[in-house]
Write a protein that binds this DNA or RNA. Structure first.
Length: 746
DNA sequence: GCGTGGTCAATACCT
DNA sequence: ACAGGTATTGACCACGCG
């Protein structure tokens, strides 16, 4: 039976003795596993083990083959019915190479993950986050020509300093003189310091796209090896991409044998998927947003990018303070965002760097494969076709302003429904899915408890990170089922979950309505309603409605609000007497022109009773100032994130591609050209002959020329008219819109 | 050449 | 390379009109 099942879980509570804990893995060319293992004093030592790489086979024709490779037949009727183990790496690679055309084979990559899965070991298993050996890295670079952006490909541009920080201890390596010899010495010194300090993880902000790539090019120039890995190993580079919400980020990935590279720039963007609060992801902006650096006081030393080289020469103390502040902020960001991934690695058979760069489906697949491998059970095919299926129930019931608002939601709706249905995915012949989900949920609840009651602050933080990390994992089980790339996906099961969810929400809506509540808005697992009668006693209403719930499903009271502005589905504003909460792209989109955003904010504060002043005065003020061209260009400019690289768009246009896009046209004119994922801010100039559409009239805000290419007042006052047409009716003081005529403003 | 009404794709949100 | 659902915007096209 499943002796090692359920899946590997980190110890509760974390052990205080950490000697022997695994802190790094690297599989060498011979297939031996080099391990970095914690010592009693918090140091690291190397151990070497043998390791037998393995692959799953889907074809009996492959059985036989390479000398020394052992093939076993697995239980069950899955696509991958044979398991091959090679004695070492060369045999493994030969075996993989010899696979006949059309035969099915699959193996876990990289081999380090395979090692963790095979041995059932996990990185940092009993360690807590403060015991991780961390290093922050940030470089400052100079530009020979002065002023412009430093480019590692220019022989004369160079690294001025490499800032490192180990714990609270900065170690700033500085160029001794501005010569090639000195730069080469600096790069060699970096190698020495990393070897001596031997960190588990190297953290940096935009470290892939900038610092490590720059260092790589300078090392190449000086013929210095990028020996930043453990066991004397060199860095390995390759181009990679990461999906963040609806867009892709390209970056030159860097892997260090035995260590993890963590880019806080990527972590911040992953974090902001849910929060969607940040307008910029630069280190300084992020540090202020996350409360690492104080915005109001002299929180940190700042030097304008183009002046760094100059300050390096003229004011060394200030240059070093700037570098030290960058390191401090980077550490602060990672303090907040890295623990989630640190916790994941204790559960999933994968490296810390992989945990930050891989998608959820891939991680869940690894949990399945862990069980199937050790049970010697055959595995299903790589991916499944999933027919489109219906999602959650969403509806806006009312428009306008309402008072005495209550919010209820179903606790963990989809995971609860999965457990209530209790069915494993079709291809899960071993029956891993539901027991795993059950165990993960119980484990998370345990951690949640310990996050409150553990004896030390470090431990409480540890459990908090752990429970948050498991929450994300648990919630992604439903999405996994509907994902066509999931090995154990099951679209029918996913569809049943959403069907049951829609039925449940509808039943709750009916029950609330029966209790004389005015339903305002419902979305997937939550309901906003207005009720003067129940406003003071929401728990009583909760109890009355909860009687209709099936076992295992729990409704929660989530908050009360003095007023709610209901606009459209998934678009509303709440006021609890202290702060305004905005939801929906119409009300909080980051791309919207700031002047329109300010008007909408004022409108909402006014409608919800947070501010007496009507937005109409502000609107007329804008109208006057726009016509006089007295409004700052940044107030009326629109922002958009590029969905493709300018070159790709250029080819698309050259091939007669349509439609053209203002943001992409602006990107083509910018120097340096922005990349996919960068934010472009632009405004619209006046109409001219043959220049009527936005994309022909759009110009970048950077380099705004008020004399030769001023903004078009008519374009922006028209937007005021449109705004008034849309939101004016909510103010209730305006005359009704005349049929067939333009509304107001004229 | 200009405005109108419709479709479609892209973007940015929500749970 | 977790899921589906909604709002908004602008390009584009067909069309009617003068």
């Amino acid at each position: 039976m499943l002796s090692a099942f359920p899946a590997k879980m980190p110890d509760v509570p974390p052990n205080t003795s950490f000697a022997g804990e695994l802190c790094g893995v690297w599989i060498d060319d011979d297939g031996r596993a080099h391990l970095s293992v914690a010592t009693a004093d918090g140091g690291r030592k190397e151990q070497v083990e043998t390791f037998r790489p393995f692959a799953w086979l889907g074809d009996a024709a492959m059985v036989g083959g390479v000398a020394g490779v052992e093939v076993e037949t697995l239980k069950g009727e899955g696509t991958f019915r044979w398991l091959a183990h090679a004695p070492e790496r060369a045999a493994f690679e030969e075996f993989v190479r010899e696979v006949p055309e059309g035969a099915v084979i699959d193996w876990i990559r990289p081999l380090e993950n395979q090692y963790l899965l095979q041995t059932r070991r996990r990185l940092y298993d009993k360690l807590i986050f403060p015991q991780l050996r961390r290093c922050q890295l940030d470089i400052e670079t100079g530009h020979a020509a002065g002023g412009g952006f430093s480019d590692a490909r220019n022989a004369a541009d160079r690294v001025l300093a490499v800032g490192l920080q180990f714990g609270a201890r900065p170690r700033l390596l500085v160029l001794e003189e501005e010569t090639d010899t000195a730069e080469k010495r600096l790069l060699l010194e970096l190698n020495d310091v990393l070897e001596a300090e031997d960190p588990d993880v190297i953290e940096g902000h935009n470290i892939f796209k900038f610092d490590l790539d720059y260092l790589r090019l300078r090392c190449k120039h000086h013929r210095v090896p990028c020996a930043w890995g453990r066991f004397g190993q060199k860095a390995v580079f390759r181009n990679s991409r990461l999906k963040v919400a609806e867009r892709w980020i390209d970056f030159p990935r860097c892997d260090l044998p035995g260590r993890a590279v963590v880019d806080t720039y990527l972590l911040v963007q992953l974090y902001d998927i849910a929060a969607r609060e940040m307008l910029a992801y630069g280190l300084k902006d992020v540090a202020i947003h996350l409360g690492i650096t104080d915005e109001t006081e002299d929180g940190r030393t700042t030097i304008e990018g183009s002046r760094i080289h100059e300050v390096f020469r003229t004011d060394r103390a200030r240059f070093l303070a700037y570098l030290a502040d960058d390191l401090r902020e980077t550490r602060g960001v990672a303090d907040l965002l890295l623990p989630t991934y640190f916790e994941q690695v204790k559960t999933f058979p994968l490296l810390l760097q992989e945990a930050t760069l891989r998608g959820t489906a891939n991680k869940i697949d690894l949990l399945f494969l862990d069980e199937y491998y050790h049970a010697r059970q055959s595995c299903p095919q790589l991916s499944t076709e999933v027919a489109p299926f219906e999602g959650g129930y969403t509806r806006s019931f009312q428009e306008g302003v309402f008072r005495n608002v209550l919010h209820f939601d179903v606790a963990s709706l989809y995971p609860s429904l999965l457990l209530a249905i209790g069915r494993n995915p079709r291809s899960d012949t071993l029956g891993v899915f539901i027991p795993l989900l059950t165990r993960l949920r119980d484990y998370r609840l345990n951690c949640k408890q310990l996050a409150r009651t553990a004896p030390t602050e470090d431990l409480r933080a540890e459990y908090q990170a752990r429970q948050a990390s498991f929450k994300i994992l648990i919630n992604s089980f439903y999405g996994y089922l509907g994902f066509s790339g999931a090995r154990f996906g099951d679209g029918d099961l996913a569809a049943e979950v959403t069907l049951r969810g829609r039925e449940l929400l509808q039943a709750l809506i009916d029950e609330f309505a029966k209790n004389d509540c005015i339903i305002l808005e419902a979305d997937t697992d939550g309901i906003y309603l207005s009720s003067a009668e129940h406003f003071a006693a929401p728990e009583k209403l909760l109890a009355e409605v909860s009687i209709i719930l099936p076992p295992g499903i729990e409704l929660e009271f989530d908050g009360s609000y003095a007023a709610m502005f209901c606009y459209k589905a998934k678009n509303y504003a709440l006021y609890d007497g202290r702060k305004i909460i905005l939801r929906g792209s119409a009300l909080r989109s980051r791309g919207i022109e700031p002047y329109l955003k300010k008007l909408t904010d004022r409108l909402i504060r006014h409608l919800l009773g947070a501010e007496a002043a009507s937005p109409l005065a502000l609107l007329e003020d804008y109208r006057r100032r726009i016509e006089a061209r007295a409004v700052d260009i940044t107030e009326i400019a629109k922002s958009e994130v590029l969905g493709q690289n300018p070159e790709t768009y250029e080819q698309f246009v050259a091939g007669g591609g349509k439609p053209r896009r203002a943001s992409a046209e602006v990107a083509l004119r910018l120097n340096p050209r922005p990349r996919m994922g960068d934010r472009v801010t632009y405004y619209i100039t006046a109409k001219a002959k043959g220049q009527t559409s936005d994309w022909q009239r759009a110009r970048a805000v950077s380099g705004y020329d008020p004399d030769r290419a001023s903004y078009d007042p008519a374009y922006y006052t028209k937007k005021l008219d449109d705004w008034l047409e849309r939101y004016g009716p909510f103010l209730g003081t305006l005359p009704p819109k005349p049929q067939g005529e333009l509304f107001a403003g004229a």
